[in-house]
């Protein structure tokens, strides 16, 4: 079984870990680094539960081999909050009641963060487009939609 050394930065902290070449990024985050916030749903890039930021862009970490993350900067759901405060998107998800079972939530939040980076004041269509790689089987999406709206307002200082 081939093993390679992986050097990367996760949530601002540099790591050097030995990984099997057949491991996915999601596996390393969860099993090597213990960052269990990143969920694995379908394992084939359809559901978006494993979404993390890789060099600032959302990717489904179940489709990225760990070795491909060499030299990259990863942000997971654990890396969004500051020491004493949740990220505005996380807070908005709570306040809008956008969480039911919670399994899709970490990926959904990461996609919402990326979406608001690109469109700080998104249209309805841009919100739907930005989240179409994340499935949620509980909420019917409306509350999630409202959470993104709320986060956008707060981040722009309007609420």
């Amino acid at each position: 079984m081939e093993v390679k050394e992986l050097n990367f930065v996760v949530n601002g902290k540099p790591y050097k870990v030995d990984v099997r070449t057949n491991w996915t990024l999601a596996q390393v985050l969860r099993e090597k680094l213990g960052l269990l916030g990143t969920k694995v749903g379908c394992g084939e890039g359809e559901c978006g539960a494993c979404t993390v930021l890789m060099n600032g862009e959302t990717v489904t970490s179940c489709l990225v081999l760990a070795v491909q993350a060499e030299g990259s900067e990863i942000t997971t759901i654990e890396g969004l909050a500051s020491a004493d405060k949740l990220h505005p998107v996380q807070q908005a998800f709570i306040d809008a009641g956008a969480i039911q079972c919670g399994y899709c939530t970490p990926g959904m939040v990461m996609s919402a963060v990326a979406l608001l980076n690109r469109y700080p004041d998104p249209t309805d269509e841009q919100i739907r487009y930005g989240l179409n790689g994340n499935l949620c089987r509980c909420t019917g999406y409306q509350k999630i939609f409202e959470a993104v709206r709320l986060a956008s307002k707060r981040m722009r200082g309007e609420a």
Partner: peptide, 9 residues
């Protein structure tokens, strides 16, 4: 193509 995450890869 696919989704945002897919297009980033």
């Amino acid at each position: 193509v696919g989704s945002v995450q897919v297009r980033n890869l």
